[in-house]
Design a protein around this nucleic acid. Structure first.
Ligand SMILES: [Mn+2]
Ligand SMILES: [Mn+2]
Ligand SMILES: [Mn+2]
Ligand SMILES: [Mn+2]
Lengths: 216, 216
DNA sequence: TAAGTTTTTTAGACTTGTCTAAAAATACAA
DNA sequence: TTGTATTTTTAGACAAGTCTAAAAAACTTA
């Protein structure tokens, strides 16, 4: 239905507009590692196909159709990531690039059966919600550890940074999804956060605390 | 490593050269539903990359590298077909087009783990052998029903025609892989073949007998 | 409001893979 | 062996997606 490139643009625009509303040409270029001029060309094509709202110099937003397509790509991405981790035993830091290819397999029947085969999982290996076959999903109501007060806590439920480096670090510290943590102290000198987990104390940097999400 | 188009050409050349030795430009064009001139262009590129042996007007054959790539694509195709049938409960006539897309997912680690996940199947849903991770597989030693003498028989083990129409017909007649059949008679008027299967008699046309393969 | 800076768009070119039409090579048949 | 039919290759063009360089629009900021 849509080319691989069109799908990648729509997904990028979707992800950027969740964070920031209207999306700029430069933002898209950065997120796809391409040049602004290439983005402008593609934006005209996507607008012609009624997938985005676009007026020159004004930035873009997705139309309803565009958003539907984008959410569907995300559904496919996250289901394949779940498959790779749960069925093929890959680690959570290994699956993104493979899913990046697999998300473009076009059959909806296939993806719906995959969903069923795995028991309709609600979240992917990184804690991100998996849209159902109608594109519905609840938005993650998660907070970074850096945003909760001392002496409060919750369950590790997601990450903001999806890089291998970050995921591998978390795995090593056993800061994985499902673990219960409490913030014991914030060291004012450098904002290091002291966590309690499994009755042990653990020091994490401000950076890590910003990118590790918990459900209260 | 190779583009989707390059992979499709290599697979087509491989399949044609199994049947006929050196492959002609027109054969490739027909098998990929493209034009001879497009094929010529691509042949020059594949030859530059040392994937095929090509001299103008002489037809082509795969180099060792080219053959390795082709066999690997076939491995991926057949493993995904097996997955779709055995894990996602698709029927054998529904999976080819999906596998046609999935065979281009590039990770070897992924395909090897998929292979393991399914218990290293030897044959795909159509009875075709699945190459192992080193590209080894035994060539199907199967004969069309039309080629065996009256009163002999064997086990249905593969098909020569992979079209939905043919596969659906076989399914309906319960002429599926694993069934034991015996040739009772060949009606000389129109070469209809009378089979015995499950203690019942079944008439199949010469065409069907040509495309249904059995192991003796 | 007038520079100056940054962002976005346009112009023109390149690559991959495709096509049609025409030319060249090969095959076949009298 | 010569002429015709078929196959294959070349020439030139096009669409998708990308790039660099330059122009235009939109912001900043004094
Ligand atoms: Mn991912
Ligand atoms: Mn994910
Ligand atoms: Mn197939
Ligand atoms: Mn098959």
């Amino acid at each position: 239905m849509y080319t691989l490139t069109e799908e990648n643009y729509l997904k990028a625009i979707y992800k950027l507009s969740v964070q920031t509303g209207n999306v700029s040409t430069n933002q898209i270029a950065a997120s796809l590692a391409t040049k602004a001029s290439s983005v402008t060309d593609m934006l005209r094509k996507l607008a012609d196909k009624l997938l985005i709202n676009y007026t020159r110099y004004q930035g873009v937003s997705l139309t309803q159709t565009g958003e539907k397509v984008a959410v569907n790509i995300i559904r496919r991405h996250r289901l394949w990531e779940y498959f790779l981790v749960e069925k093929l035993n890959f680690k959570w830091d290994e699956v993104h690039d493979m899913a990046e290819e697999m998300e473009h397999i076009s059959s909806t029947e296939l993806i719906d059966r995959l969903d069923e085969f795995m028991g309709f999982p609600a979240r992917d290996p990184h804690g991100d919600p998996i849209p159902d076959c109608n594109g519905n999903f609840k938005i993650n109501d998660l907070k970074p550890i850096s945003a909760i007060p001392v002496h409060s806590g919750g369950v590790i439920s997601g990450v903001r940074d999806h890089s291998s480096a970050f995921l591998q670090y978390l795995e090593k510290q056993e800061l994985t999804i499902g673990k219960k943590i409490t913030v014991k102290e914030i060291i004012s000198y450098d904002n290091t956060v002291v966590l309690q987990m499994d009755n042990k104390n653990l020091h994490i940097s401000r950076d890590v605390a910003n990118n590790l999400l918990i459900a209260l």
